[in-house]
């Protein structure tokens, strides 16, 4: 049409991206991936009392082809991992993943050979939600934070993850390493798992 040559550079691209992301965020259809007790809270969030329909999310799609957001609710076992990956691959772009609960986020209290220690070993995660299980308000809080991320995403819907350097607080100490703060006695207690 020649319209894009007359417009200032970048004008069309940024505004289309803003528009597209607004629409994406306000009609985010989740794929159910309920694996354990967190799924009960997820169902409660979809129900009448908490009513995810207020955010345009009432349709939990059974088919990944129709979903934008995968809410991984529950612990992911090693055997479930390839299934989860396949469901993720079947979802059309743009797609987002919300790790609901501590088990999906990091393995939680199940630090054993059967459970994947965080679903981000399999799929990229956009939002981590602690809690065991998180109450519906916590899930809605995570979803709303994800909405905010999607609104400022680029035109492909890619969100930028925050890094540890964005945090104003002290960096955490990884297990088994000595911090460089001085000559303290060695760590005696159980180290924190990552």
């Amino acid at each position: 049409m020649g319209l894009e040559e007359k417009l200032p550079s970048g004008f069309l691209l940024t505004n289309v991206a803003k528009m597209a992301n607004m629409v994406r965020a306000d009609s985010l259809w989740p794929a159910t991936f309920g694996l354990a007790c967190c799924a009960i809270e997820m169902m409660a969030t979809g129900g009448g009392r908490y009513d995810l329909a207020r955010f345009g999310m009432e349709v939990f799609r059974a088919s990944p082809r129709q979903a934008d957001l995968m809410i991984v609710a529950g612990r992911v076992s090693q055997k479930m991992a390839p299934v989860l990956r396949q469901i993720y691959d079947q979802m059309p772009e743009p797609k987002w993943v919300l790790a609901m609960g501590v088990c999906a986020s990091s393995g939680g209290m199940f630090n054993n050979y059967a459970i994947v220690q965080g679903v981000d070993h399999i799929v990229p995660v956009d939002m981590y939600l602690p809690g065991c299980p998180p109450r519906p308000e916590m899930l809605m809080d995570a979803i709303l934070k994800l909405h905010e991320k999607i609104r400022v995403a680029d035109i492909n819907g890619k969100t930028t993850p925050t890094t540890i350097d964005d945090s104003p607080y002290d960096k955490p100490i990884a297990r088994g390493t000595r911090h460089a703060l001085g000559d303290l006695e060695p760590v005696r207690g159980p180290g924190v798992r990552r």
Partner: peptide, 15 residues
């Protein structure tokens, strides 16, 4: 309870 974050490391709360 509003603790959701997009970084695993930021969810390790320090003193």
């Amino acid at each position: 309870y509003e603790l959701a974050d997009d970084s695993r490391q930021d969810l390790i709360f320090t003193k």
